[in-house]
Nucleic acid binder design. Sequence first.
DNA 1: ATACTACGATGGACGAAGTCCAAGTCAATA
DNA 2: TATTGACTTGGACTTCGTCCATCGTAGTAT
Lengths: 138, 138
Amino acid sequence: MSDLLARLRDRGWRLTAQRRVVAEVLDGEHVHLTADDVLERATARLPEISRATVYNTLGELVLLGEVIEVATDGRAKRYDPNAHRPHHHLVCSRCGTIRDVRPAGDPLADLPAGERFGFTLSGVEMTYRGVCPDCAGG
Amino acid sequence: MSDLLARLRDRGWRLTAQRRVVAEVLDGEHVHLTADDVLERATARLPEISRATVYNTLGELVLLGEVIEVATDGRAKRYDPNAHRPHHHLVCSRCGTIRDVRPAGDPLADLPAGERFGFTLSGVEMTYRGVCPDCAGG
DNA sequence: ATACTACGATGGACGAAGTCCAAGTCAATA
DNA sequence: TATTGACTTGGACTTCGTCCATCGTAGTAT
């Protein structure tokens, strides 16, 4: 955590109370929060924080590569603080909760040259879908 | 195409002019249109068609498994008429165009039991990212 | 052909998610 | 401790999508 704040300061970030709180919220629980979740938790610690600032800060963290934006459905984006460990996602089709997973193999290598259409590949996201134990009624 | 209309009638669909037009638009160009794209093209053929009907029809086609909903970014969903041939997507990070691709291997099998967290898996979506030849300046 | 009726279409209000902007505030620097 | 430009604020605005009461019509029966 303090690592994150240190990295941000090194990159010329002005360390405001608002940014600190957003970073703390993301780092606090390693779950995948929506912007509104972040706003709610941030407001608990710093009541005057505004929606715009939360969006701004999340966007900056994404640009800096400290946080990953996950759009698993057409709903609100979720923010994944686990950015420094490559992984994919497993999403519950009922309740929408997300787990980080690491499949075997190298999916990038699995795309044959004939299927690349001349693209220069930069990465691949995998989203596994299923029903979690809670929603399955187990 | 007439196949699609036939399948829909077999499933008890009332074949209205609006539904016919939406189906034709989707089947016409095999690209990945947004709901607004579909509305625009549908309006060209049937000026009185309403936004709600386009959304309703697209939703029904998705439920019937005739069309796949693709959410590659946080923006508008896109609708993929290539539903009967399993495939994944290759998205240009610059211009956003989408190509259908078929990677080798079975990504579902690549998720080890220890990484399934008790979920009952139903499928997996892969989104390859890269830059297309046009955008690469080639 | 005609009438009937339930299913589908309409459009406008509504809601959720996110962006933008002018004005005010404050962290870092000197 | 004064300065200043980067940051924050809140509210208006945009985009994408849903909902609903009312109207229209495809398919069926006669």
